[in-house]
């Protein structure tokens, strides 16, 4: 008899605990969903209101009539310019820095300072990067407001993205492979070139795609360094100013009077489409890699 009451009491306690657990689980799920659902609703609104202005023509014609009509071609092309030049600078630099940190750097005070600098570089507000770009590239180095100055600013700002993702992919290659190579008399560089990099390159690419996405969306750093509100001509080289998609959204949303509502929605949709496409690509690529185990 005593035995059975004890059993009963225990199962009662268990039931209560299970109810609590279920309650908390539901609560946390709700919070997660509340984080995601508004954003999905917002994205839906963007699509509904913006898709009307989307067309091939929208993508490939110039804005007309004081930017209240026409397309976004100069802004789109400008973003391609800015992102390409920024990547040409930041990818080699970032990959090299990551190789140093992952493969050569001893565990000492200056490596710690480098790591701290990377964290800070990522944490400095984008508008301060813009000020730096103005002070350093526009004025001091005399590049003026140009694609070069803007892309340098973007490159430095997104450098931590490349460094961190590259370092992660390098370190995902097991240390035992390196030791095996060193034991055969390979130098660090031979080991990196023949074993580490070939096995990290897809991971690095994933990070680069992510950087394309980041760079495409940045606005503040290019506002005063190379991107213009409106230009009647297309950029011909890296010393020209250019329009940019992100800044164009800001301009048509806030600076231009009498813009039909669908136009800024269309620009926002294109911008977010590019960014999310890049991110999805990067995620898909990463999952593909994970499924293709090489060791």
């Amino acid at each position: 008899m005593k035995h059975s009451t004890q059993m009963f009491a225990e199962s009662d306690l268990n039931n209560r605990n299970r109810r609590y657990e279920q309650l908390f689980k539901t609560l946390f799920l709700l919070m997660t969903l509340l984080l995601i659902i508004p954003v999905l609703v917002i994205l839906g609104t963007l699509i509904v209101k913006g898709s009307g202005s989307l067309s091939i023509e929208f993508l490939f014609t110039e804005p007309t009539n004081g930017m209240t009509e026409g397309g976004i071609f100069p802004a789109l092309l400008g973003t391609v310019w800015l992102v390409s030049v920024a990547l040409l600078i930041s990818v080699p630099l970032g990959v090299a820095a990551a190789i140093y940190l992952s493969e050569y750097a001893p565990d000492n005070w200056y490596t710690r300072i480098i790591n701290l600098a990377i964290i800070n570089l990522a944490g400095v507000p984008s508008i301060v990067h813009a000020l730096f770009g103005v002070g350093a590239f526009v004025i001091f180095f005399g590049f003026g407001t140009s694609i070069l100055a803007a892309s340098l600013t973007l490159a430095i700002m997104t450098l931590p993205v490349v460094i961190v993702s590259t370092r992660e992919s390098l370190q995902a290659v097991p240390h035992a492979f390196r030791e095996a190579c060193w034991n055969m008399g390979a130098t660090r560089w031979q080991t990196i070139r023949k074993v580490v990099l070939p096995n990290a390159v897809s991971g690095i690419l994933t990070g680069v795609i992510l950087e394309v996405s980041r760079t495409t969306g940045e606005t503040a750093p290019i506002m005063f360094t190379g991107a213009a509100f409106f230009l009647p001509y297309l950029p011909q080289g890296i010393f020209d100013q250019t329009m940019a998609l992100s800044l164009h959204l800001f301009v048509v949303a806030t600076q231009v009077p009498n813009v039909p509502e669908s136009l800024p929605y269309g620009v926002a949709l294109v911008l977010i489409g590019i960014v999310l496409l890049m991110n999805t690509l990067s995620i898909a690529f990463r999952m593909h890699l994970r499924s293709k185990k090489k060791w």
Binding site: E179, A180, N183, G185, W295
Partner: peptide, 18 residues
């Protein structure tokens, strides 16, 4: 590196390079 190239090493856990 030249010294190490004259010495073959086999580890406790096998390491087939990828």
């Amino acid at each position: 590196y030249a010294l190490r190239s004259r010495i073959g090493v086999v580890f406790p856990l096998p390491v087939g390079l990828p």
